[in-house]
Design a protein around this nucleic acid. Structure first.
Length: 299
DNA sequence: TGCAATT
């Protein structure tokens, strides 16, 4: 439902047709979603900006891929490979190198043991075309990688249906956010599809930490104008990192903003940076006060 | 100073 809210607003703001953005959630699928979705843009430049802004963005434990959608066709179906028996020393890059000659790799992943952080010797590789995947199986199944003691198994991956937790994509509004003094977006994190880049504060979901809840960090924004809207909050906070939700609190009768709102961000460091940067920010004729939400909420 | 919730 939040999903439909997000995509509903997206459609409202950007509407229909033309360029397609393909999203792929790395590290497994979530909820009943298959882990990916499509967004249509009216303007190619908007699609371009969505890609450059959101690709590689970390959301919870995931890193999203955002790229142009490949045209749908039977030739790209069932092109995902399951590889097992890999030497534990082989990294994602090494596995990709081994398979690259068979075709264009759409994505890849080496499974890692949660506790030890070491490779489990299992990988997935999705090729652009099923024929490429078939070639790779023919050639590499039962083969030993250079220096390996055991042969690897290469076969088609099982059809997609693992169930996991659900999470949401923060839309990023189309106005250039630089005027909010936000950081250039995620230069260091982009393309680092590694589970090592997990927020080090997320293990600290402690009771004493302000603003923290089970899903990210809630930020209190005070001194919004009467006609503040959610779009403003997305614009202000989006540049600092993964924003999962924004809310402008309005009077039920007048529908005017009561002067404050909330923003949820996934990663502590990004939330802290947003607060440090936006607290005291002048929005119109008002000086914003931005802080972690306090827990005075039980009535 | 002001910290929600009409899914």
């Amino acid at each position: 439902m939040f999903f439909s809210f997000v995509f509903g607003s997206f459609q409202l703001f950007f509407s229909f047709v033309c360029f397609i953005v393909f999203l792929f959630f790395f590290f497994s699928s979530l909820g009943h979603s298959l882990g990916y979705g499509f967004v249509n843009y009216l303007n190619p430049s908007d699609a371009e900006r969505a890609i450059s802004t959101l690709n590689g963005l970390r959301l919870q434990s995931k890193t999203i891929k955002v790229s142009y959608a490949r045209p749908s066709s039977d030739t790209i179906k069932d092109a995902n490979l399951y590889i097992s028996g890999l030497p534990k020393t082989m990294m994602q890059k090494d596995v990709e190198e081994m398979f690259a000659r068979y075709g264009r790799i759409i994505n890849s992943r080496v499974l890692v043991d949660q506790a030890s952080g070491l490779s489990r010797g299992v990988a997935f590789i999705r090729f652009d075309k099923r024929a490429e995947a078939e070639e790779a199986i023919k050639d590499l199944n039962g083969q030993k990688p250079p220096g390996a003691a055991e042969p690897i198994t290469v076969k088609f991956a099982a059809s997609p249906n693992q169930v996991k937790n659900s999470q949401i994509i923060p839309p990023n509004y189309h106005t250039p956010p630089r005027r909010f003094g936000g950081p250039v977006h995620h230069q260091a994190q982009r393309f680092r599809f590694s589970p090592m880049s997990v927020d080090h504060m997320s293990g600290m979901s402690g009771v004493n930490m302000p603003g923290n809840s089970s899903s990210g960090w809630c930020i209190f924004v005070y001194n919004l104008g009467q006609d503040a809207d959610e779009g403003m909050l997305w614009q202000m906070f989006g540049p600092f990192g993964a924003v999962t939700n924004v809310k402008v609190i309005r009077d039920f009768n007048t529908n005017k903003c009561k002067g404050f709102g909330f923003v949820s961000m996934t990663n502590y460091e990004e939330a802290a940076m947003a607060i440090a940067s936006l607290n005291g920010y002048r929005l119109g004729d008002k000086i914003l006060q931005v802080s972690f939400k306090t827990s005075k909420s039980h009535k």
